[in-house]
């Protein structure tokens, strides 16, 4: 067995899974930076996946299908935005409601598709010249479908917006101290609305990558808990899009260990362990990163707190 082949396979699978997680994580980072906690990622992804699946099936155009997924995520997160920003309801409750709504709505709308076994052609990979010749990294990172390339680009774009533009500065300040930001003339409500809607749209696109890229038919439970891992990855990556890139692929890599170890015949650790590993890791990450010292330094100070203007 050629170790290079095994390593390359591992990386290809890592990029597939990691990119799905990455887009959702980026979306959630953008939302949480404005102080809005959206636990509806799983529901948004699922609804996005279904929307893109239907549109791709009808039009055969992946760009329109991806836009449909973004729109679906946007519309669903609009509910969260209205409830948590305008009505100032508890964001955890609202987010969980979005997850349940998204999953339920997808299951309901998608039922005829699941029963009639509709299938689409998955997106084809585009080989990037020169870069795809690099061993291991080339075939895994630079021979993927366009939505994976979109995820790389989004890392840079979101990092640039958050850290290099005045809108990003406003957004971050709204997440840290909304009353201060308000007193400086920043429209807190509008900023939070934009952040929530853009974040929701990205979660929808993550669902589109999942279904258009790798799992080209619709059935219930297709997102399989990835939304929750994305929520944990936000904390893991300290609300920074650049760290999210490494975090997502790290989790993607952990997810390939089961298959890889079985390939090489490494049998010391039972396969059950690998199934639980991403979730175990999630808990460990949450415990470590939720220590008060870390929270004070990294977490948006007003995360999850509704803002009421004092008159």
């Amino acid at each position: 067995m050629d170790p290079m082949i095994i390593l390359t396979t591992m990386f290809i699978l890592m990029v597939q899974e990691g990119s799905i997680l990455l887009i959702a994580t980026l979306g959630e980072i953008f939302t949480e930076r404005s102080g809005i906690l959206n636990l509806g990622v799983e529901g948004l992804m699922c609804f996005g996946a279904l929307s893109s699946f239907i549109v791709y099936y009808l039009t055969g155009n992946w760009v329109i299908a991806t836009l449909a997924a973004a729109f679906a995520g946007l519309m669903l997160s609009l509910i969260h935005a209205f409830v948590s920003i305008t009505l100032k309801v508890n964001q955890t409750v609202s987010g969980l409601a979005i997850t349940i709504l998204g999953l339920g709505l997808s299951s309901f709308i998608g039922r005829p598709l699941a029963l009639s076994r509709v299938r689409i052609e998955p997106l084809e990979s585009i080989r990037i010249p020169v870069l795809s010749e690099i061993p291991v990294i080339g075939p895994s990172f630079f021979n993927q479908n366009p939505l994976v390339y979109f995820s790389y680009v989004m890392v840079i774009i979101l990092w640039f917006i958050l850290y290099k533009t005045s809108f990003g500065l406003n957004l971050r300040s709204v997440g840290e101290n909304p009353s201060m930001a308000d007193s400086l003339g920043i429209n807190v409500f509008l900023t939070r609305y934009i952040a929530t809607l853009v974040g929701g749209a990205l979660c929808g696109v993550s669902g589109a990558l999942l279904i258009l890229g790798y799992y080209p038919s619709w059935y219930d439970g297709i997102t399989a808990g990835r939304g929750w891992i994305a929520v944990a990855l936000v904390i893991f990556s300290s609300w920074n899009p650049l760290y999210a890139f490494f975090g997502a692929y790290f989790f993607g890599l952990v997810g390939t260990l089961n298959a890889t170890f079985q390939s090489i015949g490494f049998r010391m650790i039972p396969t059950d362990f690998f199934r639980t590993l991403p979730y175990l890791l999630t808990i460990v990450v949450l415990v470590i990163f939720s220590s008060t010292r870390f929270r004070r330094r990294k977490m948006p100070a007003s995360l999850g707190k509704p803002y009421t203007r004092e008159l």
Binding site: T9, E17, I222, N258
Partner: peptide, 19 residues
Amino acid sequence: NAWFDPEGANKAATSLVEN
């Protein structure tokens, strides 16, 4: 180690073909 695990099945199948 699961009846329903599309992600695991994808990885297992790809590894069998590639490795």
